[in-house]
């Protein structure tokens, strides 16, 4: 099979896959840089990591994978003409995205209350940079989910859900590195 047919195999819009791969590379590079800088002060990184709200972050993993499930089901339901069901699933997916952001906000507020900023330690510079950039994607994803709830053409839902799964995928790789590898 030639290269063009390989590209044609991808579900949905090619540009959405370009975006997904680009985002994965950007976050992957950020996480590798994080692990590289950690080599200069592993003890300091472990100590800094102990201040993180791991339970909330683990709960957020469940929130995002559930939200991704609803977005994926919405596409299936829309294609099988369960339009209302699809719209409700997308609304619930967006609501779970907001739950994720609220938990993230509680986490950031807790850090601020402890006087922890991005200047406290290089660990927190990466922590705020990577989790903040991801949270910005979650915010954008919520907006996209609401948009495709309104303009619920199956192609729109497919593209929007793919963006949301990318956000999910990034979190799945980001969570263990930032929160668990002490």
């Amino acid at each position: 099979m030639n290269d063009s047919s390989l590209i044609d195999e991808l579900p949905g819009e090619l540009l959405m896959w370009v975006l997904i791969i680009s985002e994965l590379l950007v976050f992957g590079a950020g996480l590798i840089a994080f692990m590289g800088v950690r080599l200069t002060d592993p003890t300091g990184f472990a100590e800094a990591q102990s201040h993180l709200y791991r339970t909330g972050a683990a709960f957020n993993t469940a929130v995002l994978v559930t939200s991704g499930y609803l977005a994926a089901q919405a596409l299936h339901w829309r294609r099988t003409n369960f339009r209302l069901k699809a719209r409700l699933a997308l609304l619930c997916a967006a609501a779970l995205g907001i739950v994720f952001l609220i938990i993230k906000g509680v986490e950031y507020t807790g850090k601020a209350a402890q006087g922890i900023t991005y200047e406290t330690h290089p660990f927190f510079l990466f922590y705020y940079l990577l989790t903040g950039f991801h949270a910005a994607h979650v915010l954008a994803g919520v907006a996209v989910l609401l948009l495709i709830t309104w303009r619920d053409d199956p192609n729109n839902i497919e593209a929007g859900a793919q963006f949301w799964h990318m956000v999910d995928l990034v979190w799945i790789m980001l969570f263990p590195v930032i929160y668990l590898l002490g």
Binding site: L6, E9, L10, P11, I20, V65, G68, Y69, A71, A72, A161, Q162, H165, D168, L169, I172, M173, F175, P176, L180, L181
Partner: peptide, 26 residues
């Protein structure tokens, strides 16, 4: 363990949520 599990989870998301299960090469 957590990295291996993250890898498996990522694969599940790619295969089922992003529908690559039927595109094995990707």
């Amino acid at each position: 363990g957590v990295l291996a599990l993250a890898l498996i989870k990522a694969r599940v998301i790619l295969a089922q949520y992003l529908d690559l299960a039927r595109r094995p090469r990707w």
